[in-house]
Design a protein around this nucleic acid. Structure first.
Length: 718
DNA sequence: GACCTGCTGCGGGCTG
């Protein structure tokens, strides 16, 4: 019995909570964690008791009388730490274990208290671990050299990302200052590739994934509104209002600007007809305090209905309670993301989640439908795995040198070589990168020791050093002394322009460019703000599924009539292409255009690749190498290429995988191509090229795709 | 048309 395995104080906690039974993931975790010293990944949907599944057995098992912090909980978000702190602290009161928050906004005297007598549990972010290792290595050792368990929350948000590689390296570095081996427990929503989750602990063979696959039943409704303008039509907004006014709803419109538009427009409709005023927006550009107010409102009020228009800020595990409906406007970029969003709905006792998928154009409708069907087939995108993360390696080399103050070359190479985050990178490569860091003044030799160089000091001593991702430079938006949020500079940011922010309308009174501040007053009408930055890549499987939907004639009963008509219309357009092999048969149409300048006929091919964003980008690279002009739109995966079909066949057949020269030329012409990597600029040119090749492009899969592709022309029946 | 995440140490001013 799992209950009997737990320690007495924890059993008392369970009794006091009046839990009549454990959730499946808790049963599995208690049994395993209590009886073994293995690493575990607990995979189970949102709100299924994962935190308790990890902490009940860990708190039962670990002897907290020992000196030093015993359990380290790592979270991707400060907000999540603050949330979990309350839960974990309540649990720990039964054992008189202290719990300390350690992040930039955490109470400083609590941190100092911990430094005096390290013990108990610490909740921390990866960046705070990095900062501690860099600035106060001795304190890091003082606190964290006797860890028994490391719990990583929302581990799926790290897997397959730069931040994840960074965290892996930090885990390795924590392990190397520990007296004995600590165990890792990762908490995760259902993820696409459990193998990658196991590898994440650095000990795949000693890591077991415990999965609870029971999913909530999802009630899905598709709604189609053909939109032509830049703004959402009144018709759509009215329908959205009718669906949401008497519910607790989250709306995901895929962008910050559109989230503002939706929140403001719904609020206006509600005002006009005397509905409730609880319409909010929640995204990275809304001020933190305003966001906390919104989260708090959603969590703590039972009586009032509300609607929050948001971005992925409300996708992760911050506790906002549960909502009745989740609305997705146009296709989410991934299935994983869609499922996380749906997981926010379905209240306790009610087994169903409600998902409304609005589409505003035919391709978005098709993509949404494809994502939904793939989900019902059990497919979730696997994470993008980066074998040789040279940029994070360079960052960590600087960090390790700073941590040690001085270190011999052989020791440095040894440390980095042993780091499981960089397993696939060879010793020769590491040495080459270190040598380049000498050349550029990042590192310096002092006798036989290596220290941080003059150029390196500038980087390492900057606050920006602790993270591996970049942040946009914004203007603060201020009304009557209080900050509402932030906006990037755009043509709209001018005095007397009216803009939406935090679900309200503002008139800009003054722009202080030097202080990067925008002063605003309340207004009655305005425009949604402009933001820059891209969304995530779409996985090839989604695009293949889109083609498959066009090929069959299934009449989906969860689509509304307009949506079904639109799908059938698209099917008609594509019915002229005979697609046999879904993976490689791709539609193409050749047109002849009269060139204006040179007065001759030119061939233009319209080619639908039906593949992922990254492969489309790489096809673009190959066309660039072949010196062919083209345009590409990723949303419908369509290329317009200045070449005949015959010509294109030749190009696709003669594709080679040797593109390094082109990429290094590209890097010289347009260094901004490396902007996706914050620390890539530390690398020798050769490694920058490889980074762009492997991370920005997908050479291997594109070569395979193009070698196998069969270009299908329309049948000539008409 | 296009997401998100985090952050030291120190000094100055203010409050209790």
């Amino acid at each position: 019995m799992p209950f009997d395995l737990l320690s007495e104080p924890i059993r008392k906690y369970v009794r006091d909570k009046r839990w009549d039974q454990f959730r499946p993931i808790q049963v599995a975790a208690i049994k395993r964690i209590m009886t073994t010293d293995c690493n575990y990944i607990l995979a189970s949907r949102t709100a299924s008791g994962k935190t308790e599944a990890a902490f009940l057995p860990i708190l039962s098992k670990v002897n907290f009388n020992e000196e030093g912090v015993q359990v380290l909980y790592i979270s991707p978000l400060i907000a999540l730490i603050n949330d979990q702190f309350l839960r974990v602290e309540e649990l720990c009161r039964y054992l008189e274990i202290s719990v300390t928050k350690w992040h930039s906004e955490a109470n400083k005297s609590a941190k100092n208290k911990l430094l005096k007598a390290p013990n108990g549990i610490v909740l921390i972010t990866p960046e705070s671990i990095e900062a501690m290792l860099v600035n106060r290595a001795h304190e890091a050792k003082h606190l964290f050299s006797n860890l028994k368990y490391v719990v990583i929350d929302e581990i799926h948000s790290f897997i397959g990302t730069d931040r994840g590689i960074h965290l892996k390296s930090l885990l390795f570095r924590l392990q190397s200052i520990n007296r004995s081996k600590f165990c890792i427990v990762g908490l995760s929503a259902t993820i696409g590739d459990f193998n990658e989750a196991k590898v994440f602990t650095g000990e795949a063979e000693n890591t077991t994934v415990l999965i609870d696959k029971t999913a909530k039943e999802i009630n899905v409704v598709f709604k189609y509104f053909k939109e032509s303008g830049a703004e959402l039509s009144l018709e759509l907004m009215k329908d959205l209002y009718r669906e949401t006014f008497d519910n607790k709803t989250l709306i995901f419109p895929n962008s910050r600007g559109r989230a503002e538009e939706v929140a403001v427009k719904l609020k206006k409709i509600s005002e006009r007809i005397g509905g409730h005023p609880y319409y909010f927006s929640h995204h990275s550009s809304v001020d933190k305090e305003v966001r906390e107010y919104v989260e708090d409102f959603a969590k703590n009020n039972r009586r009032n209905n509300f609607t929050i228009a948001c971005t992925s800020t409300l996708e992760l595990g911050i506790d906002i309670g549960s909502v009745d409906k989740v609305v997705q406007i146009d296709a989410a970029h991934s299935i994983a993301s869609l499922i996380q969003r749906v997981g926010r709905s379905g209240r306790q006792g009610n087994k169903q989640s409600n998902l409304y998928l609005y589409a505003t154009n035919n391709w978005s409708l098709l993509q949404s439908l494809a994502a939904w069907l793939l989900y019902t087939e059990g497919f979730i995108e696997p994470p993008a795995v980066m074998d040789k993360p040279y940029d994070i390696l360079a960052h960590q080399i600087l960090s390790v040198v700073r941590e040690r103050s001085e270190i011999r070359l052989s020791d440095l190479v040894y440390v980095v070589k042993s780091d499981f985050a960089f397993q696939a990178i060879s010793e020769t490569e590491i040495t080459e990168i270190i040598n380049y860091l000498f050349e550029t003044g990042m590192l310096e030799k002092l006798g036989r020791e290596i220290i941080i160089g003059i150029e390196g000091e500038k980087i390492v001593n900057n606050r920006d050093f602790y993270s591996v991702f970049t942040a946009e430079q914004n203007f603060k938006v201020i009304n009557e002394g209080s900050t509402i949020g932030e906006l990037p500079f755009s043509p709209l940011i001018r005095e007397d322009e009216n803009i939406f922010l935090a679900a309200r309308i503002w008139k800009i009174k003054l722009v202080d460019e030097k202080a990067r501040k925008i002063f605003v007053v309340k207004a009655l009408d305005g425009k949604r703000p402009m933001f820059y930055g891209g969304a995530g890549d779409v996985h090839p499987r989604i695009r293949t599924k889109m083609l498959e939907i066009l090929k069959v004639d299934t009449q989906y009963d969860f689509l509304d009539a307009k949506g079904l008509d639109e799908i059938n219309e698209l099917r008609k357009d594509f019915s002229t292409f005979t697609i046999g092999d879904i993976l490689y048969d791709r539609p193409i149409v050749e047109k002849i255009v009269r060139s204006k300048k040179e007065d001759e006929d030119l061939f233009v091919s319209e080619f639908c690749s039906f593949t992922g964003t990254k492969i489309n980008r790489t096809i673009g690279l190959f066309l660039y190498i072949a010196d062919v002009e083209y345009e590409v739109a990723d949303y419908n995966s369509m290329f317009t290429i200045s070449a005949s079909i015959e010509n294109l066949r030749d190009i696709f057949e003669s594709i080679t995988s040797d593109v390094d020269n082109t990429i290094s030329r590209l890097l010289e012409d347009k260094p901004a191509i490396l902007d996706f990597s914050k620390w890539g600029k530390l690398l020798p040119p050769k490694y920058q090229t490889i980074l762009v090749r492997d991370k920005y492009y997908d050479i291997e899969n594109t070569v395979e795709f193009l070698r196998n592709i069969q270009l299908v022309e329309p049948s000539t029946l008409d």
